[in-house]
């Protein structure tokens, strides 16, 4: 497998075909792409069809996760995931675990893409974020003076695209656990297994990710003119 200087898997950017990945996979697992022998034709076709069934059913979920993790690169990331998953499909012993298995491959693809793009990850000071409370900030700043449900009105200002924008502004190490746990219903233990981090690390990142998300929501609301009286 070809790797970049930082150890991540190289991805062709902006390409629907992802040719570099295809070439890479072809080199690694040429036998999967060659004409199967007469002895193995039945097994190969059956395996390919079972993979296709699994992948087709999971496409909406894979695309949704991918959108939240890598934004506009979602489609390329899903393609890369499909290639990697197809290559490893014969190793999947329990096909009832297929949905979680293919999702975990996608998440690692997205993480690789994040590392590939962000050679200089965003430095974030969490000191002030730790003390930040969106609830108290809204109450103190009172952006909608005539509202009877100030906090709910604040949340209702956000469209799906706004939430998407805020999520993508979070550093990947916080975005991944936040998205997987709170939007895709993964258990924290499952996230720890997928990203190969201790459970305590995942819980700490989740906590900071939530605080940072609150802070970024407030900043975004001010910058995008959602607040009737913009406050600093």
């Amino acid at each position: 497998m070809v790797q970049t200087e930082d150890g991540s898997t190289p991805i062709a950017s902006g390409s629907r075909c992802n040719n570099s990945v295809i070439d890479d996979v072809y080199k690694d697992t040429g036998s999967l792409f060659e004409e199967p022998s007469a002895m193995t034709t039945g097994t190969y076709v059956d395996e390919k069809e079972r993979f296709r069934t699994l992948a087709t059913l999971q496409l909406p979920r894979l695309y949704a996760i991918s959108r939240r993790l890598v934004g506009d690169d979602a489609e390329d990331a899903v393609q890369d995931c499909l290639l990697r998953a197809f290559r490893k499909f014969s190793q999947l012993e329990d096909e009832s675990a297929g949905p979680a298995w293919i999702a975990s491959i996608l998440i690692n693809v997205c993480r690789d893409r994040g590392r590939y793009k962000a050679r200089h990850p965003e430095e974030v000071s969490l000191d002030d974020v730790e003390e930040f409370s969106l609830y108290r900030t809204i109450a103190d700043e009172d952006p909608f003076p005539y509202s009877d449900s100030l906090h709910l009105d604040f949340l209702h200002q956000f469209t799906r695209e706004d939430v998407h924008h805020v999520l993508l502004s979070l550093p990947e190490i916080y975005r991944v656990p936040l998205v997987l746990v709170h939007m895709d219903g993964f258990a924290t233990k499952e996230v720890a297994r997928i990203i190969e981090a201790p459970l305590g690390t995942v819980l700490a990142r989740l906590h900071r990710g939530r605080k940072l998300f609150e802070r970024k929501m407030w900043d975004y609301a001010g910058e995008s003119g959602m607040l009737k009286e913009v406050v600093s």
Binding site: L59, P60, Q79, L155, H164, H182
Partner: peptide, 28 residues
Amino acid sequence: LRGFLAAHGDTDLPEEVKVRLTSFLDEL
């Protein structure tokens, strides 16, 4: 906020993307 995040979890798979990904699968 927890409910808000969960409710914003759904993202539609655009038809044109679905077609491209399905044909990509067919070519594997």
